[in-house]
């Protein structure tokens, strides 16, 4: 039985003039996997994500997302992915319900589907008392969880998360990760960038990017053995010094 890989990248490259932001990265992500994409700020994580979700055209190399080519089939890719950016990307001046309805609407969900989805999200997140409040009034952790739920409103196969947990405390991050696990258990592939090393431990496999190149790729456990490190922090520091 051959399964289609969720993401396949082969020597994927992005150059801006003479600067190479992403330098021939090769990796693949299995379906239902939580794949961590680590790297320091400016290592090229966001650029790599943008190529995969069709916001940026690669300079060189190949990649397929959900089985579709990133050069020619961006429209199909977009139908099968969800995306949550660093800035959570909700409309702060709209209510919780209006946000869900809008994102459901732009993915072409029917009125009935939107209604069930809204119910589902509001009750899962225990936002019932706040569903008619504007998003700007919610605490940051809630906004992030809502943004994640909204990114999955159209039941995508893959959800891309670009530093989803910036600026919140570890307890709130933990809650957020519970949502990620729940989604992954239902078969959704999660592609997440982060620079929190404690989060890296939650991933099935991680890749570590340094200066546009992938320098390490394995499960957290194997990486710790490979680098003779006690924690992911140590792995990262050893890599960065090398």
């Amino acid at each position: 039985m051959t399964t289609i890989k969720a993401i396949e990248a082969n020597l994927l490259t992005k150059r801006f003039g003479s600067f190479t932001a992403v330098d021939a990265i090769t990796f693949d992500v299995q379906q239902g996997e939580i794949f961590g994409f680590l790297g320091a700020n400016g290592a090229g994580k966001t650029t790599a994500i943008k190529m995969l979700i069709g916001l940026s055209r690669p300079t060189d190399g190949q990649a397929k997302v959900a089985g579709f080519d990133v050069y020619r089939q961006t429209e199909q890719i977009k139908n099968h992915i969800g995306y949550m950016s660093q800035r959570f990307s909700l409309y702060e001046d709209l209510t919780v319900k209006q946000n869900i309805r809008f994102y459901g609407g732009i993915y072409g969900l029917s009125r009935r589907e939107i209604k069930t989805k809204t119910e589902e999200i509001v009750s899962n997140l225990e936002l019932r008392d706040y569903s008619n409040k504007v998003v700007g009034a919610l605490p940051l952790g809630w906004k992030q969880r809502l943004a994640f739920a909204v990114a999955g409103v159209h039941d995508p196969k893959i959800i891309f998360l670009d530093e989803p947990t910036g600026g919140v405390d570890p307890a709130t991050r933990r809650q957020f990760w519970e949502m990620i696990y729940a989604a992954a258990n239902q078969g959704v592939t999660i592609f997440v960038t982060t620079h929190y090393m404690d989060e890296a431990e939650y991933c099935d496999r991680i890749s570590i990017m340094v200066d546009g190149k992938i320098e390490a790729l394995d499960s957290p456990r194997n990486l710790k053995i490979q680098f003779e490190a006690k924690s992911m922090d140590d792995v990262f520091i050893k890599l960065a010094r090398a």
């Binding site: 979700i53 069709g54 916001l55 429209e75 977009k78 139908n79 992915i81 995306y83 950016s85 660093q86 800035r87 959570f88 990307s89 909700l90 409309y91 702060e92 994102y103 732009i106 993915y107 072409g108």
Partner: peptide
């Protein structure tokens, strides 16, 4: 400015 444009562009619209 709010970053919501990226989300719109990632959608199939």
């Amino acid at each position: 400015e709010m970053g919501t444009m990226d989300l719109l562009l990632v959608s199939p619209l």
